[in-house]
Write a protein that binds this DNA or RNA. Sequence first.
DNA 1: TGAAATTACTACGACAGATGAAGTAAATGG
DNA 2: CCATTTACTTCATCTGTCGTAGTAATTTCA
Lengths: 110, 110
Amino acid sequence: MISSDVIRGYNDTIILYLLLEKQSYGYEISKRIKELSNGKYVIKETTLYSAFNRLLKKGYIESFHKEQTFGKKRTYYRITESGLLYYQEKCREWELTKEVINQFIREDYL
Amino acid sequence: MISSDVIRGYNDTIILYLLLEKQSYGYEISKRIKELSNGKYVIKETTLYSAFNRLLKKGYIESFHKEQTFGKKRTYYRITESGLLYYQEKCREWELTKEVINQFIREDYL
DNA sequence: TGAAATTACTACGACAGATGAAGTAAATGG
DNA sequence: CCATTTACTTCATCTGTCGTAGTAATTTCA
């Protein structure tokens, strides 16, 4: 399992990546994160929904409702133009972060 | 520059890595972090010293004073046995974290 | 058919780690 | 001798995560 202090700062990026694939809603996103990480990372519900609110406030995502006759009503989210820009920025930052932290990791200890 | 939310969770590891090289003190460690990261990461003083306290409390490092007739009195730190174990654990965790986050990064956006 | 599990959230409070601001004090450099 | 660098400490604030709890509809399955 992965400590949350590491992922902190990348939860938003993870969510944006999934919304880039397709518009989605809370429950689906949490399943997809677990799936894509091979069960290595399971986001907490409260973490996920507070991330949605943060991203909404910043204008990086938009929420909307679909007409649906079945299932419980869901709030869907889609990524915005500025959300995409933010995501790209974060991707670049991630490459840098990897470089930096790698400098302090001893390969012979793995 | 790198956002602190990413490094958070790895500041302790970075410090332990440097203490593994040799016993050291605050100022020297902060210089060394800047140096090894090619200026890409500069740890804040308060972050550094609060990390020391955390690591001391957990028993991952020990502090001591050297006899010195010159220079301002410094608090030196050395890594402990359990600090080494913790560091190794973090190195393994880092490899996992990289794998997971990489799943959500689009290479075509770099 | 009825109970349990799953889906799909919301609200609230606590906590940890990072950080800004400010201060102290000795040593060194020009 | 004055500014800068070295070497910290204290304190208060902020952000993001997470535990706990609650609501409510829908699906499963015995």
